[in-house]
């Protein structure tokens, strides 16, 4: 389902061809920037009661974007990445079974969330695969780190999804 996620279809090949940490970060950063732009574009298109969600997602992507930018600037990047991947985050596969929506005219909050989860899922899988195919070393560690980050984001979205969609409270 990663095909559906915007801007990620060809990214695997693109990243694979990069060799230095800086280059890889650069590509990753541009993915995040595109996502941010996507949500920002979406904001005026959705009904006002749903805007909060798209706005939050845009902010989230902006934070990712900032994270990557900061990483690129940081001289001790290797050290930092090593520390962060000590505790890998486990994928729980909740969103695997939610159909990816066609973000057409009738956009609702659930569709937006589904889309966002799918996007995080695709990114996560991508980085995980990249880390699996690289030799141990700084680059491997970086992919591992990025996969962890995306997994965490996905899980945050899953929580929100549950609270918004699954539990309107116990009801009567």
């Amino acid at each position: 389902m990663s095909e559906h996620a915007e801007g990620h279809s060809a990214s695997y090949e693109r990243i694979k061809s990069k060799k230095s940490l800086a280059e890889i970060l650069e590509v990753a950063t541009s993915f995040e920037q595109k996502a941010f732009e996507f949500y920002t574009d979406l904001i005026p298109k959705v009904s006002k009661n749903l805007r909060w969600l798209v706005e939050e997602l845009a902010v989230e992507e902006q934070e990712h974007f900032a994270l990557f930018t900061n990483l690129a600037k940081d001289p001790s990047i290797e050290e930092q990445v090593k520390q962060q991947i000590q505790t890998p985050v486990e994928d729980r596969r909740f969103s695997d079974y939610i159909q990816l929506p066609d973000l057409g005219d009738n956009i609702d909050d659930q569709a937006i969330l589904q889309y966002a989860m799918g996007r995080e899922d695709a990114a996560m899988k991508q980085y995980r695969e990249l880390s699996d195919t690289t030799e141990p070393g700084a680059i491997h560690d970086l992919f591992e780190f990025l996969a962890n980050e995306e997994t965490k984001h996905k899980q945050e979205l899953e929580k929100l999804y549950y609270e918004l969609i699954h539990s309107g409270g116990p009801g009567n």
Binding site: S47, K48, N49, R51, W52, L53, D109, L164, I165, G171
Partner: peptide, 23 residues
């Protein structure tokens, strides 16, 4: 699972005029 409101009664204009809080 969860339930939600059908807020179509407000119409576009009023929906835009009203303030919303997390949906």
């Amino acid at each position: 699972i969860g339930q939600m409101s059908d807020i179509s009664l407000f119409g576009e204009e009023l929906t835009e005029e009203l303030e919303w809080n997390r949906g």
